[in-house]
Design a protein around this nucleic acid. Structure first.
Lengths: 168, 168
DNA sequence: CTTGACCCTGTAGTGACTACAGGGTGTGCA
DNA sequence: TGCACACCCTGTAGTCACTACAGGGTCAAG
């Protein structure tokens, strides 16, 4: 099977497949006389494994590790469990950070519901005052006196990633 | 004030400040005879505004827009409200996607609690079977018969971002 | 013989930084 | 005066997981 067929069967883009090969995640396939990649069912499984792990939010480095464990049948699976535990912890932290963020944004949003001039906008005023050192509604949503900003916000929200599906 | 002092006062790294200037978010400061950047209190406020917005998860592009609205006092603040609404929607989506992810990982984790050989590890087995087309516990956590993987997972978790705080 | 779909390599772009290299400046101290 | 050392400068390249081209080659059908 050629790379385009593999792409169709897995829903993975051709260029992503080549990228995984370059990164050493996917084993290099045999080549036809003209240099075309020829994939087997085994490699289809390999790619599906990678995609499944990716859909669980694992990094390519994690997947590389997992694949190594998979190849080494005698390896103590405690390492696998740990990898999943770390992934759970990471995702859990992100959920918590983002939930806090959502609360902060909602508190900020509550500062203005009208259509006024920017100069009178409660949201903008709140943001400007916060930048001048005032305690801000968005970072003190529950009346706490916390100076500075949330310490454990880890920029999880900075990537507004999109899947293949919601692209036009 | 020199750039190092501004960095200390804001908790922002020197190189990030220069980056914001390059990106046009922070106005270019005056320079000393030897070319050193000299910042005023106004620019301190400007940077704090940016950092505050960043801590709310806004992109630099959003912050650029917001700063433009801020400068144009007569601008209808409906645009500001909309920007915050979009940010809330984005964060909310990410929270939902990550919560689903967490459930999936927990379901997977439940497949193995022992210390066995990798060949017998329930987690690994589940992942391998899933890559062979079997319905997987992690992507059918509630007994549904959903083929393929979660459609609205938007790679929110793929950036395992770290803040300044948790670096060694 | 041409068309058009497919394949190849290699490079550059994304976002929001971060990390250097290789140099210049400013201040304090011996 | 010489030197150490902290600070500053520009410019470039790296991070992650792709994505998008450019510029070319291959292959089957009509």
């Amino acid at each position: 099977m050629l790379i385009g067929e593999l792409a169709r069967q897995t829903g993975c883009e051709v260029e992503t497949i080549r990228y995984y090969e370059r990164e050493g995640l996917l084993s290099a396939p045999q080549r036809s006389a003209s240099g075309y990649r020829r994939y087997t069912a085994e490699q289809l499984g390999e790619l599906n494994f990678i995609l499944h792990c990716r859909s669980l939010g694992m990094s390519l480095a994690d997947i590389r590790n997992l694949a190594a464990f998979k190849a080494d049948h005698q390896h103590d699976c405690e390492d696998i469990n740990q990898l999943i535990d770390q992934q759970i912890a990471k995702v859990h932290q992100q959920v918590e950070a983002l939930r806090l963020l959502e609360q902060q944004l909602l508190a900020l949003r509550d500062k203005c519901h009208d259509s006024r001039a920017a100069a009178d906008c409660g949201i903008l005023q709140t943001l400007v005052e916060a930048s001048e050192g005032a305690p801000c509604v968005c970072h003190t949503p529950f009346g706490q006196d916390n100076h500075g900003h949330s310490q454990d916000y880890d920029h999880a929200a900075k990537k507004n990633g999109r899947s293949n599906k919601d692209r036009p």
